[in-house]
C-alpha cells in the first residue's frame, strides 16, 4: 500500500469501522450502504479525492451473499492516489443512497446501474433507464439474466422456429 494512503485508510476504519482488503497494491474499503455518502464526503473534502473516476457494480451470484458490490473508484489528482470503496448490497431489493450531491458525475452512472443491475439509488433526481428501452424487462448484467436471445435455425428445426418468429408486417 502507498504510504500516503495509510492515514486515509486508518481514518475510514475509525469512523465507519470499514473493513479493508488489498489486492495487487489496490486498496478496497468495504462500508455499509447507509455510510457511503458520509464516506465519500469525507474523502472529497478532507483528503482531496476530487474525482469519481468510476462507479460500477459487480454481481457475485451465486458464490457470495450479499450478491452485489457497488464499486466507487476515487482518484485524487492533487495527491496522485486512488482508492476503491465497495458497498455490498443484497439481491432481493438492492438499495443504496445516491451520491449525486457529492459527485455530479454519479447521476448517469447510477442510472446505468439501475438499468443494468436493478440497483436502486435512494433520492436519485432522475431514476430512469439510461441504455435500454424504457419497456425492457429484467436487468441484463445480472448473472441470472438469460444469455443469448434467439435459437439458431438448422435444417431439422427451421420450419418449427420459423412459425413463431416475429416477422414484421408491411
Amino acid at each position: 500500500m502507498d504510504k500516503k494512503l495509510e492515514p486515509i485508510v486508518k481514518s475510514l476504519q475509525d469512523k465507519f469501522s470499514a473493513t479493508f482488503e488489498e489486492f495487487r497494491d489496490e486498496v478496497h474499503l468495504f462500508v455499509k450502504p447507509e455510510q457511503i455518502v458520509d464516506a465519500l464526503t469525507l474523502l472529497r473534502d478532507e483528503y482531496n479525492f476530487e474525482l469519481l473516476s468510476a462507479l460500477t457494480a459487480v454481481d457475485y451470484y451465486p458464490q457470495e451473499t450479499p450478491r452485489f458490490h457497488v464499486v466507487y473508484q476515487l482518484t485524487s489528482i492533487a495527491k496522485n492516489l486512488s482508492v476503491q470503496i465497495r458497498v455490498p448490497v443484497n439481491g432481493s431489493s438492492p438499495k443504496v443512497p445516491t451520491a449525486t450531491h457529492v459527485y455530479d458525475v454519479a447521476n448517469w452512472r447510477e442510472r446505468e446501474l439501475l438499468d443494468m443491475f436493478g440497483i436502486e439509488f435512494d433520492g436519485h433526481p432522475d431514476p430512469r433507464r439510461i441504455l435500454s428501452p424504457e419497456d425492457m424487462e429484467g436487468h441484463p448484467l445480472r448473472k441470472d439474466f438469460p444469455l443469448g436471445y434467439e435459437e439458431p435455425q438448422f435444417t431439422f428445426n427451421f420450419d418449427e422456429i420459423d412459425l413463431r418468429k416475429p416477422y414484421a408486417k408491411e
Binding site: S132, M136, G138, P140, F145, L147, G148, Y149, E150, K165, P166, Y167, A168, K169, E170
Partner: peptide, 19 residues
C-alpha cells in the same frame, strides 16, 4: 440475422422490424 450479436440489445434480423 443478428450476426455475432446474439444478445439482449440487438434485433436478431431486421425482418422483425421491417419487411
Amino acid at each position: 440475422c443478428g450476426g455475432v450479436f446474439n444478445n439482449y440489445a440487438i434485433f436478431q434480423g431486421v425482418d422483425e422490424v421491417v419487411p
